[in-house]
């Protein structure tokens, strides 16, 4: 079974969002990393990029496949997890902590409230996959 921690929000594109003040930290869920398999490369957006909600702003590549990363939240990219350039496998082993991908300064700090809760994401997973 996939890990679905309760302290973050989820998108239907299998990203998670953790909010602190007006900054959102975004990564891919345990379900997403497990579907992709061994992650070897992440194509990040640039710091300073403006992104609209649900826009593809990067990609994560496993040995077998490539998947776009969508931002569930609009805002400006303030930081990317460059550590993943050396240890992309952290996305597999620790998707909700070490494997975080991007930090965004949110245009609308309330936007994350509209995303799925852990319970809702779990229901979404069992209904759709």
């Amino acid at each position: 079974m996939s890990q679905i921690p309760e302290n973050v929000r989820y998108s239907k594109d299998h990203e998670w969002v953790s909010v602190e003040g007006d900054t959102a930290t975004i990564g891919i869920t345990d379900y997403a990393q497990s579907s992709l398999g061994d992650v070897v490369y992440i194509d990040f957006p640039r710091v300073g990029d403006k992104v609209a909600a649900h826009e593809a702003f990067g990609s994560v590549e496993s040995v077998k496949a490539v998947s776009e990363i969508f931002t569930p939240i609009a805002g400006e990219v303030t930081e990317v997890n460059e550590g993943l350039n050396d240890t992309p496998e952290s996305v597999n082993s620790d998707p909700y902590a070490e494997g975080w991908m991007v930090k965004i300064k949110m245009d609308n700090p309330g936007e994350a409230d509209g995303l799925l809760s852990a319970v809702e994401y779990e229901e979404f997973l069992s209904a759709n996959v």
Partner: peptide, 9 residues
């Protein structure tokens, strides 16, 4: 099987 739990690498 495309892979087992150990993973492709």
């Amino acid at each position: 099987p495309v892979q087992y739990p150990a993973g492709v690498i």
